[in-house]
Design a protein around this nucleic acid. Structure first.
Lengths: 354, 354
DNA sequence: CTGAAAGCGCTTACAG
DNA sequence: CTGAAAGCGCTTACAG
């Protein structure tokens, strides 16, 4: 394996000069020499050794990402795993831009904690960790000592999980209010008045973040719109959302708009409309939440609220790395990621309006 | 940060002894001393520095996993992303057991190659790479030079992608014949004769691996069974599979068994049966392929062919690490991962049989 | 602008 | 069984 010494010898310069070129230290090497060195590097196929750089810089230049093993096996979460992958992608991108590599931990069922001990705490190998979230089956009394140990090792962390937030881990969460408010405004502009809601109906406010249903309800109210009481349906699975949509059609109580709590549920709504010959958006408008990658290419492109999953991942990494790089500087308790309404074909004017 | 020197000083022993204890070198340190050292390590919260160990051992002790960015955004693949995560989990487990960490690359759309150059080739940072697969949109003429560079850097790779296999990358693939043959045998035992097939119908043999449809056809034939010609349906999406199942029921041509090419399609079949009051397995048996995590907890637990995704991940890592650790030893062209038939409630006796 | 030297924190022969 | 010393391949002051 060729090392920096070989390169220096071959180019007839000092090791210091080569290092200066590699690190792009301005004004330390003459332009002519610089070119010679770069050429020699190319010729010899020299690849700087990352682990040594880490050693000398006293930093691992690596972050870890822990992904909860149960998220993988549960059928309920299956539709949203694609979104987790995008989150992961965002984390990796931000890390890379700042010169960090991303180490992944997907422990076996119920070995999450153990794996973090082995790969992160027992070895000095990473500078920080993104705790995406733990299974709700995992007891708090196991999580506490883990967080304690991480603190002792001076390994900063960051999370997207409300439970960990409750334990004091810096928290990154999307703020749907902006996007939902914009959607409500557009619905009002288009002459809509009363609509249906199909999806998760949750009224519990977590960490001062109202759930999506409540947000939609209050934003609609602001614009003089509402969900018809008899048209609010708490459905979790794709087929339940599908059947509920069929039922609304068959009972002839189709409103001018339906809000689905996620794109993958709205997709099944589109299928139901298709089966019954209902035209979207001529007969009914659909609005949903997520802006999953497939929303734009759906049977009818979905108007939806973009949660910026990629950006969320980037922010997670940014909040983490800011802690890593300014030792001691503590992260904000909560960092919000803004949402936006993306208008697409599934949203149109209310029936009977011009 | 406390290092090995501090530990040695505090315990009043040589650095060599501490190192010997850390590396579990038998018969080099007296038992009494060993205990003292371990206790000191515990007290001081000493964490051996992985990057230095890597440096001294002249190995990165890290593998990279590249995941194709397009797999994330395509709606067609959405149902199977959970399986990719399990693959990733298997890779990580095998790596960990052999002392390696797993570095993940999920590049942005169409930046796959570029990312591998930057994080793997330009820097000496990983010992090998799992190329899970590239988008079919990516041209071969970009892939070839990449593989060439990897070879020059002596970075072994392994893949699950047929295109890369065609380029000479060691290939790991599941072998469905065993599981499908067992399923066909059981169907025969239970008195079935002619059934339906709903799902991907593909007859192209890739790398001497017949596609699942052909395998099923030939295995059934071996046991005197077959798919009724008019009951073979090429369906790709969940709703298409659902509607096709409904149609079979409504047209009163329900056979005694239906094979679905994937669990997630079979799940929609179950929904169709449910909607029409058809009892599984009393009225019809269902068999599918994947043994996805949710197959066991479906409305009716699915009889399915286990592709051992976790094991597949482990084998990918094993084939890779075997190359890493025996420099020069080349990997087998193809490594097969065995499949098994998992019998569950959705399979029962044919109607009219005792 | 240039280069010899110290040192990051371990492991590995090697001599006792 | 024990320990002093060399060295992995870089970067960082430092002196010229």
């Amino acid at each position: 394996m060729v090392n920096i010494r070989h390169v220096a010898a071959r180019a007839g310069v000092s090791v210091t000069s080569v290092s200066n070129v590699l690190n792009d230290n301005k004004g330390t090497v003459s332009e002519e020499k610089r070119r010679l060195i770069l050429q020699t590097i190319e010729e010899m196929g020299y690849r700087p050794n990352r682990r040594v750089r880490q050693l000398r810089k006293q930093a691992n230049l690596t972050i870890a990402v822990q992904i909860d093993s149960t998220a993988i096996s549960s059928n309920i979460w299956r539709p949203t795993i694609a979104l987790d992958m995008i989150l992961l992608q965002g984390i990796g991108r931000q890390a890379e831009e700042r010169g960090y590599h991303t180490h992944i931990l997907i422990p076996e069922q119920s070995r999450d904690i153990e794996d973090i001990y082995r790969q992160v705490i027992k070895e000095n190998a990473v500078d920080g960790i993104v705790l995406v979230g733990f299974s709700s089956a995992l007891d708090d009394c196991l999580i506490k000592p883990l967080l304690e140990e991480l603190k002792q090792c001076a390994i900063p962390c960051v999370t997207r999980d409300t439970r960990l937030y409750a334990q004091g881990v810096p928290y990154v969460i999307y703020d749907l209010s902006n996007g939902i408010n914009a959607a409500a405004g557009r619905l009002a502009d288009l002459g809509h008045k009363r609509g249906a809601y199909i999806g998760t109906v949750d009224r519990k406010i977590i960490n001062s973040c109202p759930p999506r249903f409540c947000l939609f309800e209050s934003c609609l109210a602001k614009h003089g719109l509402s969900f018809a009481e008899e048209l609010v349906f708490d459905e979790r699975t794709e087929f339940d959302a599908y059947r509920r949509t069929l039922q609304i059609i068959d009972n002839d109580i189709l409103p001018t708009f339906i809000v689905y709590s996620s794109d993958h549920l709205a997709m099944t709504g589109l299928e139901a409309m298709h089966d019954r010959g209902i035209k979207v958006p001529r007969d009914v408008s659909l609005v949903s939440i997520d802006n999953a990658p497939y929303a734009a290419t759906a049977r009818v492109p979905l108007a939806t609220i973009d949660q910026h999953h990629l950006e969320q991942g980037r922010v997670l990494a940014r909040v983490l790395l800011d802690q890593v790089e300014n030792k001691g500087a503590s992260a904000p308790d909560i960092t919000l990621v803004r949402s936006d309404f993306i208008e697409r074909d599934s949203l149109g004017g209310a029936r009977g309006e011009s």
